[in-house]
Design a protein around this nucleic acid. Structure first.
Lengths: 262, 262
DNA sequence: GAGTTATTCCGTACGGCGTAAAGCGTTGCG
DNA sequence: CGCAACGCTTTACGCCGTACGGAATAACTC
């Protein structure tokens, strides 16, 4: 199960598939399918029903072949996940370019974060597949490149640029994760957050929370204000803190670089 | 993967187990086990071999009963995971108190983040658990309380305190995740990062990276400096940015609150 | 052409998983 | 005592990833 949440499998073959540089077979019957069709079907299933619904049997059925024919095209499930990841990276929103007017790095970074967030919400299963090794597919590299470009020309060195991208991506992923999980559980169990609270409330009422008065107080205030938590607000708040933090770094480092324009 | 449907009764039963408020059975044979023993065994397996090794059958075997006897104590696997989560929250490091000298919120927050990180590295499987709902067990609430206390008396309102905790926790989790996956994959596949790069390198060399020159350049510089990425450095960098961001907020909000002391 | 060989596709099977169902024996309440 | 509640077990179902082996097909060698 969780063995496949990381990478592994046939690394070399997987990479060749990622970049489409596998030497085609010279004899034998022609395949009825190709890898992109399989990956597309897998992504459709994941988008609609979650990563748990993506089994090799299910994908094979979706493209109209028997269970084992799947393995003719993809060496194992770990590689399928790699391919899905890189393919999904293809539909991220475009970044604004210099042509759209004067660059404002703060606005660019915010847009980047919002776009990443929207992308993750479109493909929630991506959060369950997260790679530990850098994405080495074409789409992943393109995304990395685009993110770096936002931090270019601000006086940061290469390492700082890379770390800034990492910080931003890690934050967005963490922030979206909570939201996605809620939706996922609601779907899997047919139980909304409200239903759940209605069940939890009475049990918690029996409990003595006084040892954690601060938690109880803040929890009550926050809960009253926006139910079980407002993910939009949390996202915006964290992003603003991170932008402030990056701004402090940039101000310190990039004396001669363009500053905020607003 | 996380497809455990929690039916209505399971949620309630799970909560009762979390808080130890089940009504004891009056007749029938005494059980040979209790829930804490089962949870402890499950955590031991998860610590040693990863979450994937935790199956109901395996846990049952570890405590010396047959596969189905497990379900006498725990209604289903999702509840087991909830119990594991809350139990694991019990071994977080203590926070320094006011008795240790003058409070410095920045240092406190940093210590908090470092402690959280160490805790996650001690129980890496926690990051793999797709939690049912926000933690409502006693340990989870205790942790939340302690984190809030660090942000108390700084001029932040309840919502800002809650959001600050969320930001910090989300960041730490995201940051640790990369590190944990590396170790996990290395263990599962027997392939170290270096082995992996040795396999990836030659394939990537065949590829034209010029469309993403910035990514290639930064990637090369970063890779040269510290191999496949230095997680310690990335963690410290992101944490510093977040601290700067929080400091800006606190400076703006808490005119009368204690400022930095260093 | 004929033969060889690489390749596609598929049926079967193995050992895992979570857990429903049903049976057995033990316990304590009435 | 009898009976209901309960602990524990065996059996079984339908999933999963995928190893294996066989049949059909296409292109290469002769």
């Amino acid at each position: 199960m969780a063995k496949f949440e990381g990478r592994g499998g046939d690394t070399k073959r997987g990479l060749e598939l990622l970049w489409g540089i596998r030497a085609g077979p010279r004899r034998g019957p022609k395949g009825r399918l190709d890898v992109p069709r399989i990956v597309e079907a897998a992504i459709a299933i994941a988008d609609a029903e979650g990563l748990a619904a993506v089994s090799t049997r299910r994908v094979a059925e979706a493209v109209g072949v028997s269970a084992m024919s799947f393995y003719t095209y993809v060496p194992d499930k770990a590689v399928l996940l790699d391919l899905m990841l890189d393919a999904a990276a293809g539909d991220e929103a475009a970044l604004p370019t210099e042509a759209d007017g004067p660059r404002d790095w703060r606005e660019d970074v915010r847009r980047l974060a919002v776009a990443q967030r929207a992308w993750l919400l479109r493909h929630p299963w991506i959060l369950e597949v997260t790679t530990h090794r850098p994405g080495v597919g074409p789409q992943a590299i393109r995304t990395y490149d685009r993110m770096l470009s936002v931090f270019a020309d601000l006086g940061l060195d290469e390492v700082e640029m890379d770390l800034s991208v990492t910080l931003l991506v890690d934050y967005v992923r963490g922030s979206v994760r909570n939201l996605v999980r809620a939706a996922q559980v609601a779907r899997d169990t047919g139980q909304s957050d409200e239903d759940w609270w209605r069940e939890v409330g009475p049990v918690l009422a029996q409990v003595d929370l006084s040892p954690w008065a601060l938690a109880a107080h803040v929890g009550a205030v926050v809960g009253d204000l926006y139910g079980a938590g407002d993910p939009e607000l949390a996202f915006a708040f964290g992003l603003d803190r991170i932008l402030d933090g990056l701004e402090a770094l940039i101000a310190r480092k990039g004396a001669g670089a363009p500053a905020r324009q607003d």
